[in-house]
Design a binder for these strands. Structure first.
Length: 596
RNA sequence: GGGGACGUGGUGCAGUUGGUUAGCAUGCCGGUCUGUCACACCGGUGGCCGCGAGUUCGAGUCUCGUCGUCCCCGCCA
């Protein structure tokens, strides 16, 4: 085999006149009859090879080359004629072939490799190894590597130890559904794949490894989304003898290093900090995208005596009236589009959508008129106050929703992000980081008729609030938890952890985990908490989401080499698949019914 | 579990109120061509319209079911 002396990307004008050998894939063949051009590609770049007709055998052999054949070419690097150098279609040099070998012939691929074109996702995943050859995926996978290296560089420089934790672990209640792995040696018992290394990293703190990190694979058996896969990767870290601020500074440091090393961008730190409640009130989500405005204004007071019954009733029942202004959008929104918006907020739980458009008053020529779907219920003074409260100008569009506060916020939040998309208000190439802090510790699950942890059960609650509200309304207790948000994506989250056995038991009890379950499920943690526990805190960032944002991708599938489809199938290997009955027997398992 | 979109030569798409021969681009194969770079030009190949029922004289088109992919809700501490 002709072994490469250089990669395709390394062949530049510096090597002019030198004899080189390259290995790679045939990207493209252009046969002009008397002269043959072959573009050869590897992961470092592309280089044009020229076959001249002088050597009949060589030329006719090269003429049979097809896309994706794997070749070795030896020849002299030569400056291309000036007339043959076109802008951005390759370098100033080419290789004039003297010898070549076909290392492997290729079938015609099922989709284009050499050009970026839309391809059915199913097909891409079936032939993922070919999809990964394409420039976009090559770029994304390389980018992912760079991000991981930047992360490691930061941690290594700051005395963190990279420590592995088990993949075969224990199923725990709370949180996502576990993937289970049957045990052969303990028939009828199961391991679980980790949803995160949470408890292990806390135990590492107990062990004295006061700065830990891991690029950790995590597994959750829940349904998929564009930003969710059943297995995903977390940048996981934990520190002892620290407080919330310390973790925030470290997280900012990691992100600063990543953006500097990968994109050459200096991101401003520290990040903006926003209370959970403020995020909900202003943006209707706990992960607001701050690249655009459209923040909400509360106009409950203005309309508390509204003649419009649904609004008045909502307010009298302790609800709110809130909305936001879309500058200059009025002429672009037809009745039909506004109906679509109404459908959207109704899906999100709102009872209805109030909307108004502003126009110049033809009589005065200056004051604004509100044209609304609740005109007849709106008094002139209410109209005027609304115009003031929202700072409305001509041709603005105003949306408002009334009802219970949380529902209103969420509905407006959904609307806000839809409007931002439609109005193209989201700037590209901008990175808006923020911290969301002071989350509620618990929420009440109607379905399960109990409190559930908003973050997780190992999060340190506000101890004063815990004492005050634990026997009355636990939803009033806040948690020392924090999320890092980038462009509307939650890219990470963490908390100060409980390091007291008593507090931990109190939280378990509030979650409805009785004494015996505490012992069987979390006994090892409670035991460990009796042997000297450093105060500790940590965080985990979603690597896939982070890389997707940096790569400008909308779906994390596009930054994962071998992802699964939304139904949890690997198109390429056809996993999950049937297993032999013998395998089941060894595991003491039997299928309830033949699902095949 | 629920809602929505899509499924037509290898690939990306079009296909009108149901109407006789399913188009276009590209790929692929063959030919011409000595500076192309998604080479160009000429010719050709290639389709059980996802699958199964039904309505109809007649279905790519309408109806029902089913399978698959994607998006969203639920779910994801």
């Amino acid at each position: 085999m002709l072994k490469r002396t250089h990669t395709c990307g390394e062949i530049t004008a510096d090597l002019d006149h030198q004899i080189v050998t390259i290995n790679g894939w045939v990207d493209r063949v252009r046969n002009l009859g008397g002269v043959l051009f072959v573009t050869v590609r590897d992961r470092y770049g592309k280089i044009q090879v020229l076959f001249r007709p002088d050597d009949d055998a060589l030329f006719s052999c090269a003429a049979s080359l097809r896309g994706e054949d794997v070749v070795a070419v030896c020849g002299r690097v030569t400056r291309r004629p000036d007339t043959a150098i076109k802008e951005d279609t390759g370098g100033a040099v080419e290789i004039i072939a003297e010898k070549f070998e076909v290392l492997s012939k290729a079938l015609t691929p099922p989709f284009y490799i050499h050009i970026e074109s839309d391809v059915n996702e199913e097909l891409r995943l079936t032939y993922r190894y070919l999809d990964l050859r394409r420039q976009r995926m090559q770029k994304n996978i390389q980018l992912r590597h760079q991000v991981v290296q930047a992360v490691r560089a930061y941690f290594n420089e700051h005395s963190f130890l990279e420590i592995e934790t088990p993949i075969l672990t224990k199923s725990t209640p709370e949180g996502a559904r576990d993937f289970l792995v049957p045990s052969r040696l303990k028939p009828g018992k199961f391991y679980a794949l980790p949803q995160s290394p949470q408890l292990f990293k806390q135990l590492l703190m107990v062990s004295g490894f006061d700065r830990y990190y891991q690029i950790a694979r995590c597994f959750r058996d829940e349904d998929f989304r564009a930003d969710r896969q059943p297995e995903f990767t977390q940048i996981d870290y934990e520190m002892s003898f620290v407080e919330q601020q310390d973790i925030m500074r470290v997280t900012e440091g990691i992100l600063k290093t990543v953006f500097k090393n990968v994109l050459g961008i200096t991101i401003p730190t520290p990040f903006t900090v926003m209370e959970y409640e403020a995020a909900m009130d202003l943006y209707g989500t706990d992960k607001p995208d701050l690249r655009y405005g459209l923040t909400f204004t509360d106009v409950t007071d203005i309309c508390k005596d509204s003649a419009f019954e649904p609004v008045r009733n909502a307010i009298q029942n302790g609800g709110v009236l809130k909305g936001f202004r879309v500058p200059g959008a009025a002429p672009r929104y037809s009745r039909k589009m506004i109906e679509e918006m109404e459908t959207l907020v109704k899906k999100a739980g709102a009872k209805g959508l109030l909307h108004a458009k502003t126009a110049k008053n033809p009589e005065t020529g200056s004051a604004l008129l509100l044209k609304t779907n609740f005109d007849k219920h709106l008094s002139p003074s209410e109209a005027e106050n609304l115009i003031k409260a929202f700072a409305l100008e001509e041709n603005d569009l105003l949306f408002m929703v009334s009802g219970e506060k949380k529902t209103v916020n969420v509905a407006l939040g959904v609307l806000r992000s839809e409007i931002a998309k439609r109005e193209s208000l989201i700037p590209k190439d901008q990175f808006c980081f923020l911290w969301v802090v002071n989350f509620p510790m618990f929420s009440y699950s109607e379905e399960e008729q109990r409190y559930v942890a908003e973050h997780h059960p190992f999060t340190m609650p506000d101890l004063t609030e815990l004492e005050t509200h634990k026997n009355s309304d636990a939803t009033k207790i806040h948690a020392h938890a924090y999320d890092v948000v980038l462009n509307g994506w939650e890219i990470g989250g963490g908390s100060v952890r409980i390091h007291s056995r008593e507090v931990q038991k109190t939280v378990f009890s509030l979650l409805g985990i009785d004494e015996s379950s505490q012992k069987s499920k979390f006994g090892f943690l409670l035991d460990a908490f009796q042997y000297g526990v450093p105060p500790h805190a940590g965080c985990a960032m979603g690597l896939d989401r982070l890389v997707a944002i940096i790569a400008g991708e909308e779906y994390i599938r596009d930054v994962i080499p071998f992802p699964k489809t939304t139904s949890g199938i690997c198109q390429m290997t056809a996993a999950p698949s049937d297993v032999e009955n013998e395998q089941l027997e060894k595991l003491s398992l039997k299928l309830i019914k033949d699902a095949r």
